[in-house]
């Protein structure tokens, strides 16, 4: 069943469109990749899906969450779905976490907020989640501050936070761009494992075709605020229709010929 669906999503700032006419839909267990060059509007689209655009930006179109249009809805209604139905993981795990709050409490927070758990139950669940994202020595680690963790560990914490309240859709906005290649591969493996386990639908944003292709089944290509291509990963890779997608595939092919990307699995 479709959880999240947009039709004709357009984002403007001072009358200038930054994102134009984007339509996409996500159900549980879907794996959609959104790819495009820097500044093409991927992050803005992601933020719009959570109603978190910077003030001053206007949206039009429709954003259906469980069939209800949330575009222009009051914050009160958005808050019911954020973290519970739709969650997001951001690119930079260091700044996305509170530098002065123990990571365990950061994971426990949403559990207390949405599920009304008391402090000790929520902390116990936080430890469980640290274990599920394969953080070492979870019982001790929950008391650490973000700067005491490695970049990869921080992103694992961010994933645990986002998934703790069992959302049905997870948006991952370039979650591995800030990490080095080996850590990147580990996080991708973890992400693959978690979405299999939890059945969460994934919208994976990246500008790196091999990375997206390794994880997604459906591919969206974005350029200057528009979707220029949409289709199963295989089709897009074999028969890119837009010139831009052809370019992407060609340059990715060049890179892969030089070195197989250390992404787990293979192109599906």
């Amino acid at each position: 069943m479709t959880v999240l669906e947009t039709t004709g999503l357009t984002i403007t700032l001072d009358g200038q469109p930054l994102v134009r006419d984007v339509s996409l839909s996500l159900a549980a267990r879907d794996r959609v990749g959104l790819i495009g060059e820097s500044g093409s509007g991927k992050s803005l689209t992601a933020l719009a899906l959570l109603g978190l655009l910077p003030p001053g930006m206007r949206t039009s179109g429709r954003i259906l969450i469980d069939g209800e249009d949330h575009l222009g809805a009051p914050d009160r209604r958005w808050r019911r779905v954020r973290g519970r139905t739709v969650s997001i993981v951001f690119q930079e795990p260091l700044t996305a976490l509170d530098p002065l709050m123990p990571v365990g409490r950061q994971i426990a927070g949403p559990l207390r907020l949405h599920q009304g758990l008391n402090r000790s139950d929520a902390e116990r669940r936080a430890i469980e989640w640290c274990d599920r994202v394969h953080l070492p020595d979870p019982a001790r680690l929950v008391r650490a501050l973000p700067h005491e963790l490695s970049g990869g560990q921080r992103q694992r914490v961010a994933l645990a936070m986002a998934l703790a309240c069992r959302p049905r859709v997870l948006i991952a906005d370039e979650p591995t761009t800030a990490l080095d290649v080996t850590v990147q591969a580990q996080i991708l493996t973890l992400l693959d494992e978690l979405i299999e386990e939890t059945g969460v639908g994934l919208l994976f944003i990246s500008h790196d075709l091999p990375v997206v292709a390794g994880l997604a089944r459906h591919l969206l290509v974005m350029r200057t605020g528009r979707l220029v291509e949409s289709g199963p990963v295989d089709d897009v890779l074999r028969r890119p229709r837009s010139g831009y997608a052809r370019q992407l595939v060609a340059s990715a092919a060049q890179v892969t010929r030089l070195a197989r990307p250390s992404v787990h699995g293979e192109y599906r």
Binding site: L50, L52, D75, R79, R80, V81, R82, G83, R84, S87, I88, F90, E92, T95, A96, L97, D98, P99, G109, P110, L113, H114, A158, M161, A162, C165
Partner: peptide, 15 residues
């Protein structure tokens, strides 16, 4: 203006 505030809001906290 910090990103962790945006994170908190993305998890359902009010401002």
């Amino acid at each position: 203006s910090q990103e962790y505030v945006r994170t908190a809001r993305s998890l359902g906290y009010s401002l």
